[in-house]
Design a binder for these strands. Structure first.
Lengths: 230, 230
DNA sequence: ATTACTAGGCCACGAGTAA
DNA sequence: TTTACTCGTGGCCTAGTAA
């Protein structure tokens, strides 16, 4: 038996969507072609090859035809579906990298202590952060590149607010763990989400103290990322 | 932005299986080619096109490269997964057809009263069938063709047995409803699963009486089919 | 070892058209 | 109207090869 060609995949899926799992459905090659974004001729060929491959069954009477997916054809779609299910559910939802703690104060440190933010931290993270942020410098390009893609994910969103004079941008928080020991949140600021060679963390505790380190130590960070398709 | 070409689908899925959702992973075009069943050159081209389409991100240092799926690339796979999920879960699991009740006794009628079968009917269907079977003749080819594919599904399996002299084949039962009114089971017999222009039903009740019909009446039958991938 | 260029074969596709 | 043939173009693929 021949294998299902990938170009026939959409066609087969479309027949299923027409209800052709157990019953014969009427499909014209013209309409099918339009629906799969191909020509009538291609649709005709697809059906012919799907039939000879044993993925569909056809009944032709005159110039009309009825089509039904075979068990084999359905199993083929199911197999692909199961493959994707496993890949998507089992793919790690964390990003791990190494970096060095930098001594300089983070840009966000001052802002993160503002009441407009701390109120939200308390309700959304469950704590008011220890004053000041921990900065970690990323040396390897592959890590900073990976982090720059974090902005595509929602994380825990802290909303912008205004103090009457100016507005302060949103903050996205990503649950993290440093050295497998200290819980904290990586923060992405609306203002400065361009440079990702330095990342900033907030925590309930003084992270340096909790880690029992000082100066420019290397740390390993694991970030949890949840998909909530923005 | 360009669309994901279907021939790149497997390649993208494979990168995800390597763990490239959030972290950069090392992949050589040679190994990737082997794994997707294509040449090294094709793998190289796939990566190039996936990159220019914005589905993956690459970091090349010298002759080595690291790859990561972008958010866009992951969404693409998720979208396909969701499409298949909907199709598979929402596709009707029933087969509906029309036919005519035939007066002749079914082939299976005698056998279905044997204790080796009735014991199993009692435990697996919850009842001992009314003696005799109802035969329905299928006139339209598309219906008989559809029914012939039923044998690919498991249904409720009644095991073969022996009375010491000979063995009696398995029977597959499919939960059915006639005229939207009477519950019964379509039976497929191991001996005679070739001719599908006449199908046979068993029921707890006398189906003719329950339907209040006699002679050669037309009936509408709905068969429920469960997938339990044999 | 690696990536990726070029050349050429093959196949998928669509236009035209027959039945 | 329908399906599906033939044929020409374009694109996917592999072999060979450069870097």
């Amino acid at each position: 038996m021949t294998d299902l060609k990938t170009q026939h995949l959409l066609t087969l899926a479309h027949i299923l969507s027409k209800g052709g799992k157990h019953n014969f459905v009427n499909v014209t090659t013209t309409s099918l072609g339009k629906e799969i974004g191909k020509s009538q001729q291609s649709a005709s060929l697809h059906l012919k090859e799907l039939e000879s491959g044993g993925f569909i069954e056809r009944i032709q009477s005159g110039r009309k035809q009825s089509i039904k997916i075979t068990h084999k054809g359905f199993v083929e779609l199911s197999t692909l579906h199961n493959l994707l299910s496993k890949l998507i559910s089992k793919s790690s939802n964390s990003l791990t990298f190494t970096g060095t703690i930098t001594s300089g104060m983070g840009e966000g440190a001052y802002y993160m202590s503002m009441k407009g933010y701390t109120k939200q931290f308390k309700s959304k993270l469950g704590y008011v952060p220890y004053p000041g942020t921990l900065n970690v410098q990323i040396k390897e390009k592959k890590f900073s590149e990976a982090i720059s893609q974090l902005s595509n994910y929602e994380g825990i969103k802290i909303n912008p607010f205004s103090d009457g004079k100016r507005t302060f941008g949103w903050v996205k928080c990503f649950k993290s763990k440093i050295n497998n020991k200290v819980d904290c949140e990586l923060i992405l600021l609306e203002r400065t989400h361009h440079d990702t060679t330095i990342v900033e963390f907030i925590s309930k505790h003084n992270i340096r103290k909790a880690l029992k380190i000082s100066g420019k130590s290397n740390v390993k960070v694991k970030i949890s990322i949840l998909d909530n398709f923005s």
